[in-house]
Amino acid sequence: MSERPWTQRHLLGIEGLTADAVRHVLDTAEAFYEVSRRPVRKVPTLRGKTVLNLFYEASTRTRTSFELAGKRLSADVVNISVAQSSVSKGESLYDTVKTLEAMRPDVVVLRHEASGAADYVAQRIRASVINAGDGQHEHPTQALLDAFTIRRHKGRLEGLIVTICGDVMHSRVARSNALLLRLFGAEVRVVAPRTLMPVGMETYGVRVFDALEPALEGADVVMVLRIQRERLQGALLPSLREYARTFGVGTRTLARAKPDALVMHPGPMNRGVEISPEVADGPQSAVLEQVEAGVAVRMAVLYLLAAEPGEQVGA
């Protein structure tokens, strides 16, 4: 009873977490999932704590999800979209963080376009830091909410076949998910056009495919990634229509997966590009459940981090 599976001061990535720590977050999230379904969807747990949402990249759903999670825990939540404020005036990440630290936040949730930004801030601030996406590196709460959703449907993560399709190259979601699922011994397959597959993906212990249908064969879970148009400068893709034809997940291609395969997408979806509308709205789609799971998982993470401030300084 006194064992403490969670000892992290920050959540910077899935890398470095144990399977026990991940399981603990998911178990804790179950309690918060229930909170969000009560008549009064709020608990007093983090009264008097301050959560700073510091977003250097546009993001509606992740920011809203963290905001709601903090508010349902009774924390004070402040949203700062830096794209519209100091960065345009030339203030560095360091100065911004130091300024914000003077406001004494307990948790800083950081989204930044540079890989490693959350790490950088965590080393320079007293608050706990949650990485809400740093460049092409990691997006740990997305992987946790995906795992939570899968576990609710399949009852386990161990031994499942999970196919991650799409823009693996630019996807921190793919990376965090691959790391998490491998912790539990799931078979992870990644599939993308060669131009969107980073070299060395095999080092994550995943199977690499360059054609969609073989990658979907017998899959328990199909994770579709968003084609990130804003990151696709140059000629990585011939055209979106070409991509939809060869790598878009539709009814016909999905039939290669198990009949009860779960379809997931981190959102926002490009309907008709990486996923067909029939699949996106179909009975196998868990897209909206992922959104609900996101709030519960982020409540769990906020609770685990904010409830012991500075407990293990230097950890």
């Binding site: 009873m1 403490r4 969670w6 804790t28 007093p44 009264r47 409830a307 407990e311």
Partner: peptide, 12 residues
């Protein structure tokens, strides 16, 4: 809740 260690196990 906000000052003690988090409960090791929260049940729904």
């Amino acid at each position: 809740a906000a000052t003690a260690l988090p409960d090791p196990k929260i049940g729904p």
